[in-house]
Computed example of a mutant assay.
Amino acid sequence: MNRYEFLKSMGLTGAALMAALTSCVHDDDSVVNALTISPVQSGTTTTPATSTTATTPTTSTTTATGNGTDLSAIKNRLLTVDLSSQAASELKKVGGYIAQSGIVVAQVSAGVYVAVTQTCSHEPKKQVIFNVSEFYCTAHGARFDLTGKGKNSFGSRGIAVYKVATDGLTLVVYS
């Protein structure tokens, strides 16, 4: 049941329904319809450095890329993805993402991956996706940058970002 259906079931109609539906929207919020945004075009995305470290309210992330990375030494694995598998086909293109085991992994630029929790901090719904150059919750429009920092009032609490390492064949998400 979404908010509209809930409010209607409570007997709200007309102007009262519209007032209730718009009461938690702020001027700085922008809602992005994730289903109608065009795919990332080459050369139009914000490209983070190949190796970054950023602190968020709950965790930190290190995005490691390149061949020669020793994945066997990684402890606290949360997710392991075989990049050659059909299930990971979306990760083969810049702007592509997968959501698996409560984690969203996206290729944000050529060979650079970022992983975040799929659970939104606005309300605990597993509806976070990657959308062009940011993470976006399809439930209420919470937006988050690549470091997990909120970009609007719905995303103000940020989301957890995980460490990612890849050797080009396998991708490991860990804490």
Rank of each mutant, 00 (worst) to 15 (best):
D167Q: 09
G155F: 09
S42V: 14
T63E: 09
D29S: 02
G66F: 03
Q118F: 03
L79S: 08
A110W: 07
V25M: 08
G14C: 03
D28Y: 05
V132Q: 09
K151F: 10
R157C: 00
A99K: 06
K93T: 14
H26K: 01
N152Q: 04
V128G: 06
G148Q: 02
Q100S: 07
K75H: 07
T119F: 08
S156V: 08
S23L: 09
K151L: 15
S89E: 07
T63D: 09
A139P: 05
A139S: 11
F154C: 02
S72R: 11
T53I: 01
L7C: 10
V81C: 11
P39H: 11
K8C: 10
G150M: 08
L91V: 06
E90S: 13
T166Y: 06
V164D: 06
Y113P: 00
V114E: 00
G102V: 11
C137Y: 12
K151R: 10
I37A: 13
R77Q: 12
N152T: 00
S9G: 15
T58A: 03
A160R: 02
Y162W: 09
A110Q: 14
Y4L: 11
L17E: 13
D145W: 00
Y136G: 01
T56K: 05
T62A: 05
Y97N: 11
K163T: 06
S89C: 00
N152G: 00
L7W: 07
S23W: 11
V108A: 07
V173S: 08
C24F: 02
V161G: 00
A165F: 11
G14Q: 04
A139M: 15
A165K: 13
I103N: 04
F144R: 07
T147V: 02
V32A: 15
S60E: 09
V25P: 01
S23H: 14
T52M: 04
Y4C: 10
Q41Y: 09
E123A: 10
Y113L: 06
N131R: 12
S85V: 06
T69A: 12
L91Q: 02
K8H: 13
H122M: 03
V164Y: 04
K126A: 02
C24N: 10
T44V: 12
S72N: 12
S175N: 09
A160W: 02
I159P: 11
V25Y: 08
L17R: 13
C24Q: 12
R77C: 01
G168K: 10
V161T: 05
L169S: 14
A160K: 02
L71W: 12
G66D: 12
E134H: 10
D29L: 03
L78N: 07
R77Y: 05
S85R: 07
C120P: 01
T147N: 12
A49M: 04
C137L: 15
T119R: 13
V128K: 06
D145K: 00
D29W: 01
T117I: 03
